[in-house]
Design a protein around this nucleic acid. Structure first.
Lengths: 342, 342
DNA sequence: CTGAAAGCGCTTACAG
DNA sequence: CTGAAAGCGCTTACAG
């Protein structure tokens, strides 16, 4: 005895009116009498009527659903971004369909097509590390599905983007080390491709340059997976070179804490002999001993802002078919959190 | 010049046949000629035809979408669960709609209704800490929408459930401390309500009992938010009581590392003076110094298993309208990972 | 082997 | 103020 879902027809029959009238009453059309509206509303509430979202989407304009493509989910920063997105979409009556690229271009393509097929009203995404060409995103512009990129964005695609200023973040981290008296500052960077690690690296070089410190490529290590283990390994290696660094700026906190622990395990003192600054302000940075100085990256705000920009485009387009989707880049502020490691 | 979405009608017109035939050809009906099938397939591929999922859902049986209600997203364990769910649903052609209860009963109710209105094929959920009564879930059984609970489950609702054996986990953690020679073992537990913290606490008591150690309520502290900070605070407090504990079992790794750092900051030695075991095997546990011993909780497998059980029920019901949804409880194994803290 | 017709649940121009 | 009709894109019993 499964219940069947209440439809407009059920309400109409019980009230002896037509579905047209019921539909209009529920949507508060001005040409329906107050009396009818009251009756319809009352019955709809009593029966816990929920419009069939598939039918509404099929008929109307938009599914009230947003698609998200994210490179990783087990990840402190991205979790925060997702939370920002969810809170904003939830508050604005949009559903969130979540998909994973696992940093693979192949999967990313698949997810774009899936979301297209699902007729989402818009897409939020952070690119996979692998992704260079953005040809697979063109289907979105062809069909005028708004896209907002965040964190890992491409400069080859025109759309709203939400990022932080990675160059400045790297610059602030490095000048902090310089001001704290470091003379030889190493950098453990991320992979070549994503713009973030490129930016942080540039900021590092810019700071050195400004302080008249010669850039030394032997002090730069490049991660593949950007893990704690890589940080530990590179931290160790850096302490074995003849002219050891006295400061390290790392592309993430995972890597930073890895380096920190390696240095402690070797028997050297942080921050006395080596100072370290990470990036992201993950929880891990607050918990290491000494706690890791880091550049705070506002994940929640990034997610919230990206969702807001997307929903604004969706709503504007609903009202005005000629509305052109935004193409600004919003760059959110970062801050240095100085802790025991520097 | 927005492109319009390719429909069956477009393909039919180009080929000079009807939508009926196109639909059947694409679904590989036996009564369509091979020749026609080939032509249709070829054109559909060429035009990158994607069936309108709303229309399919409206017409057919099921939306190929699963709803997830999760208490928290910025959370190492739940992130892993979600990844397990996503990988499984993705591999089986289901979409995932993700919603947050933020551990609030009110929001949880809202999300259940939202997912019901969205006509998801099934629901996965872990209960909010606040949730005691499960009356708001009855709508799912009334409309025969399958539900699988994981991690935080209720014994008042009949459905498939995936959990770990918290009692055993707490027992294993505590007996480990006893065997390592601890005489006075404290427990920093979670809130009263969720079954997990209750279970871990029971396991703790069971172990004490078995080893003939008298249970001392002054050695039990109860967290509200289960954070690093609470762990730090309680760790400190425990070291201030006259007859200090020499071992601590904590409800999570956050709390465990908090306690560990507090004890180090006081100037006491871990594991020499106090041994600590956490719970969950979060990343944080590998990174503290000494690394935290912990009970590994297989988040990914929990998610994967829950998704599998749900999709099995969905598919079976599609084939057999009389199929009755499962109501077994799968209890996954935990393991002790011994590290430097014990 | 192919197609005409009905219908899923809704919305909205149009008629009365 | 209310309702009959068309249609969104699809699937499937039924007819030929």
């Amino acid at each position: 005895m499964t219940k069947h879902r209440i439809t407009l027809k059920d309400i109409a029959e019980k009230l002896g009116i037509t579905v047209t009238t019921v539909s209009k009453a529920l949507r508060d059309y001005p040409d329906i009498s107050e009396d009818t509206k009251k009756k319809v509303l009352a019955l709809a509430n009593k029966l816990n009527y929920q419009p069939d979202s598939q039918a509404v989407a099929l008929r109307g304009k938009g599914s009230k659903t947003i698609g998200l493509i994210i490179p990783e989910i087990v990840h402190y920063f991205f979790s925060n971004v997702i939370k920002g997105i969810m809170d904003y979409t939830e508050a604005n009556g949009y559903r969130l369909l979540i998909t994973l690229s696992s940093n693979s271009l192949e999967l990313e393509k698949k997810q774009v097509n899936l979301l297209f097929g699902t007729k989402v009203d818009g897409v939020l995404m952070s690119l996979a590390n692998e992704t260079k060409s953005i040809k697979h995103l063109e289907i979105l512009s062809e069909y005028e599905i708004p896209l907002v990129m965040f964190d890992k964005v491409s400069d080859q695609f025109q759309c709203n983007k939400v990022t932080i200023d990675d160059v400045n973040g790297g610059y602030v981290a490095t000048t902090h080390l310089l001001r704290r008296g470091c003379k030889r500052i190493a950098h453990i960077r991320g992979p070549k491709n994503p713009l973030n690690s490129k930016g942080r690296f540039e900021g590092y070089k810019k700071a050195l340059d400004e302080y008249g410190v010669k850039f030394d490529p032997t002090l730069v290590k490049e991660c593949t997976d950007v893990t704690y283990e890589e940080g530990y390994q590179f931290g160790k290696e850096l302490m074995q070179i003849p002219n050891k660094p006295d400061g390290i700026f790392t592309v993430t906190d995972q890597v930073g804490v890895g380096a920190l622990n390696a240095i402690k395990d070797i028997g050297m003192k942080v921050p006395n002999e080596v100072k370290i600054v990470g990036f992201s302000d993950s929880q891990i940075a607050q918990v290491s001993q000494p706690a890791l100085s880091t550049i705070h990256q506002p994940g929640y705000e990034i997610g919230e802002t990206a969702a807001r920009l997307l929903i604004e485009d969706i709503e504007l387009r609903k009202k005005d078919p000629y509305h052109i989707f935004g193409s600004k880049q919003i760059i959110l502020d970062t801050h240095l959190f100085r802790r025991g490691s520097s």
